[in-house]
Computed example of a mutant assay.
Amino acid sequence: MSEPVETVETTPEVVEEKQRNKVLLTEEGELTDKFFAVLRTVFLKYARLTSTTVKVKRKGAAATVQHLRTDEEKARVAALGRKEMNAFTRVTNGEDLPDEQWKEVTEYLDTNDKGELTFKGFIGLYALQTGALRRAITLPAAAASTRVQDTEEAETIKDLKAWGYDPETLDYTGIVVAPTPSAEPAAAEAAEEKDEKKEEEDEVAAKVEQLEVK
């Protein structure tokens, strides 16, 4: 009896997804060099430089201080504070980052001594979101287990489009697909207004009832 032949799904959607995975992640589960470079470019667009110089240590020589020259050097001293992060998320998600999410980001990802997100933390954020196994930071066990299971490559694809990049090639096209703000805050606000209106109506009804009794 012959062994069953394993069928491999080859629909256009599956082929496209596999091709996209190769663009974002290597076979070893790392961020690809091109995706890493894109993230660095985007990070530096919004980040604030905390210094104009950087210490450089060359083999066989003492460390020297020099002015920032390359994006790699700039990324080492740049960071996203609350203001910079909001500017980034407005472009990426269409709205400011909620306070709870900012607290979570700065609690689990790498920050500087001012509590600002470093490039290492930014890379960690996208490594986790995209499902990379490496080039990510080490999280506490409980946090890591929940976040790794909750990775959403679709979110990364959406972000790339919002930045003007083609997610299939990671080439910059300048064609920006504007994000749609979450409906949750608006829904919550509408529900709160409805509750307040009901309380006012109940209060008025109670006063009218008191007058009628008198």
Rank of each mutant, 00 (worst) to 15 (best):
Thr70Cys: 04
Val65Ala: 08
Thr180Phe: 08
Val23Thr: 09
Glu100Ile: 09
Gly121Tyr: 02
Pro185Glu: 13
Ala188Met: 15
Thr50Ile: 08
Arg40Pro: 02
Thr32Ile: 04
Gly94Arg: 11
Gln149Asn: 15
Ile137Glu: 04
Ala63Arg: 06
Glu84Met: 14
Pro167Asp: 03
Ala62Leu: 09
Tyr108Pro: 00
Gln101Thr: 11
Thr52Ser: 12
Glu116Arg: 04
Arg90Val: 15
Glu212Ile: 07
Lys198Trp: 07
Thr92Trp: 14
Val38Asp: 01
Lys22Thr: 12
Asp110Leu: 02
Thr70Tyr: 04
Val148Cys: 13
Lys158His: 11
Gln129Tyr: 06
Asn86Glu: 15
Gln129Thr: 14
Leu133Gly: 13
Ala141Leu: 11
Thr89Arg: 10
Leu139Lys: 02
Ala142Gln: 12
Ala141Tyr: 08
Ala79Ile: 03
Glu28Pro: 04
Leu117Gln: 00
Arg69Val: 08
Ala205Asp: 13
Thr169Cys: 04
Lys214Gly: 10
Asp166Cys: 00
Glu203Asp: 10
Ala190Tyr: 06
Lys103Arg: 07
Thr151Gly: 12
Trp163Tyr: 14
Thr173Ser: 06
Pro12His: 10
Glu152Arg: 15
Glu184Phe: 14
Leu133Thr: 10
Thr173Ile: 06
Phe122Leu: 02
Glu209His: 07
Phe88Thr: 09
Glu116Cys: 06
Thr130His: 04
Leu211Met: 09
Glu152Asp: 15
Glu184Asp: 14
Thr173Lys: 04
Lys59Thr: 13
